[in-house]
Amino acid sequence: MESWFKVDADIFDNKKMKIIRSMRNGDCMALIWFFLLSLARQQNDNGYIYATEGVAYTAKTLAACGGFRPKVTETALGLFQEYNMIDVEENGYIYIVGWAEHQNTEALAKLKDHDSAKEKNRQRVAKYRQKQKQSNVTDCNAECNDKNITCNADVTDCNAECNDNVMACNGNNKIKKENKNENNHYSNAKCNGTSITNLVVSGSGNDNDNLISFWNQNITPITPYIAERLQTIAKEQGELIAMQAVTITAQQGKKSIAYCEGVARNLASGDMQKPKKPPDSFKPTDDQTDLDKYF
């Protein structure tokens, strides 16, 4: 952008300039004059000088902007007014007298329009970018909300499914317990001075389910691993011995499936006097969980 102003080549031969320079701090006051011309060109408002729209310069603020002493600046402004070089209006604006005569006002007006157009374009671009930024934030928030809604819906569906499964499981356990009470009856026998219950299975119920249900209700929560081991006991030793072994395990306060397997082997071998614990050389199978090793 062009930024210049005209100065007569013989300005230092001008009478006013000679008088000013002959005074005390004259060279400094002459420099202040060129500073005012520079401000008028920067403002590009037909020779008017002001700090910003609606705010006028004072001698103190001019001195601060130009790096001059306030007292010298105040003297220079008074002198420039006296010699009709500037005019200070009621609102405090400083006007360079004869600005239009010495400067190419038409060219400066075009430059001002050009600068104004550039400023408007800059503001328009800044406004557009701000709008785009806000739009992106809004879209991002909307997307996040959609994902949260979808996630919450999935969690709700999952919770509903889990609740249905729990209700179904409780219902099955209740039915199994009723069937066991109706179809099973017990006889008491003496083993090691304590009364143990020998379960006699009758009816058409699922014996493996009764076995698993009894373990789950009286010993420990059932796991797939324990259920598989109980089914193996029933298959190898018979369902009656398996149920008796589980009952003895519960009465002895044991929680290990390995102990139950040892009782089942003792019952199958005919030793009903005292349940034998598994031998010291007994080693659990590789698929036994670490938890079972401590019971």
Rank of each mutant, 00 (worst) to 15 (best):
S195H: 04
T194N: 13
Q132V: 11
Y57A: 00
N173R: 13
D113E: 14
N104T: 05
C162E: 10
C162Q: 09
V137R: 14
K177P: 00
L240V: 13
N184R: 10
N216P: 06
K147E: 14
E101Q: 09
V72G: 04
E53Y: 04
N173I: 13
F5E: 01
Y294S: 07
K120Y: 02
R265W: 09
T156M: 08
Q42R: 13
I49N: 00
I248K: 03
D115L: 07
M17Y: 06
A76Q: 04
A51L: 14
K15E: 13
T156G: 08
E178D: 10
P284K: 13
K147I: 08
V166Y: 12
T249F: 03
N179A: 09
C28T: 12
T105M: 10
S38T: 10
E236H: 09
I219C: 01
V201N: 07
N91W: 05
T75Q: 15
V200G: 05
N159K: 09
K110S: 08
I149Y: 11
T247N: 09
S187C: 09
A126F: 00
A51F: 11
K174S: 13
D146F: 01
K15C: 06
V201A: 08
A9L: 10
D8L: 03
N44A: 06
A268Q: 13
I222E: 06
Y294L: 13
Y259L: 03
I19A: 01
P284T: 04
K71A: 15
N172C: 09
M1H: 11
N192S: 14
Q134E: 15
A100T: 13
M272F: 12
